Computed example of a mutant assay.
Amino acid sequence: MNSLSSIALSGMNAAQTSLNASAHNVANLATEGFKRQEAVQTEQPGGGVSTQVRQAEVAGPALETDVVTQLQAKHSFIANLAVFKTSNQMAGALLDIKA
């Protein structure tokens, strides 16, 4: 099993990748024939996620989807950051007790 910090870090990286893909989509709304990017997350054995970016099968904008994706990515990043910070605080407290 991976450490809590590495699991949280993979979640933060996945959120950043999702945010980047949706921002790319918004920036290219007016580009004719543009195919949106989608971030696909895959669960990893032992904890954490990996993320890959793929092109959507259908061309055209989906602004509503991209705005919702950006909000989800923001909240996911914040939640994983809280886990990361708490994990580090717990490790620091444990070291203080052991010292």
Rank of each mutant, 00 (worst) to 15 (best):
Q72P: 10
S76D: 05
T65H: 09
Q41T: 14
T86R: 09
N13Q: 14
M12H: 11
F34D: 00
E57M: 07
D96V: 04
Q41A: 11
A21E: 02
Q44C: 10
M1L: 15
I97L: 14
G92H: 01
R54V: 14
G92V: 03
G48A: 02
R36W: 00
G48Q: 02
V58N: 06
N80G: 04
R54A: 11
T42H: 06
P61A: 08
G47D: 03
N28Q: 02
L9D: 01
A93E: 10
V26S: 04
V40W: 02
T69W: 06
G46L: 03
V53E: 07
A59N: 08
V53I: 10
G48P: 07
N25K: 05
S5V: 12
A27M: 01
T65R: 14
V58G: 04
V53N: 04
A79R: 04
Q52F: 11
T42N: 06
V53F: 04
A23M: 06
V68K: 03
K85M: 02
L95C: 05
G60E: 00
I78T: 12
S50K: 10
V58D: 07
P61E: 03
K74I: 14
K85Q: 01
P45S: 05
L94I: 15
S87Q: 06
K35Y: 02
A39Q: 03
L71Q: 15
S6G: 11
P61G: 03
E64C: 10
Q16Y: 09
A99C: 00
K35A: 04
H75D: 07
G33P: 00
E38Q: 11
K85S: 02
A23F: 07
Q37V: 11
F77S: 08
N80A: 10
L19W: 13
E32N: 10
A27R: 05
K85T: 01
V83F: 13
S18N: 13
S6P: 09
L71C: 09
M12E: 07
M1S: 14
G46H: 08
K98N: 15
M90Q: 12
A59M: 06
G33N: 03
A15H: 02
F84Y: 11
Q72S: 11
N80Q: 07
F34V: 04
G47H: 01
E32G: 15
E38N: 09
L4V: 13
I78W: 07
V67M: 13
S5P: 08
L9A: 09
G46A: 08
M1F: 14
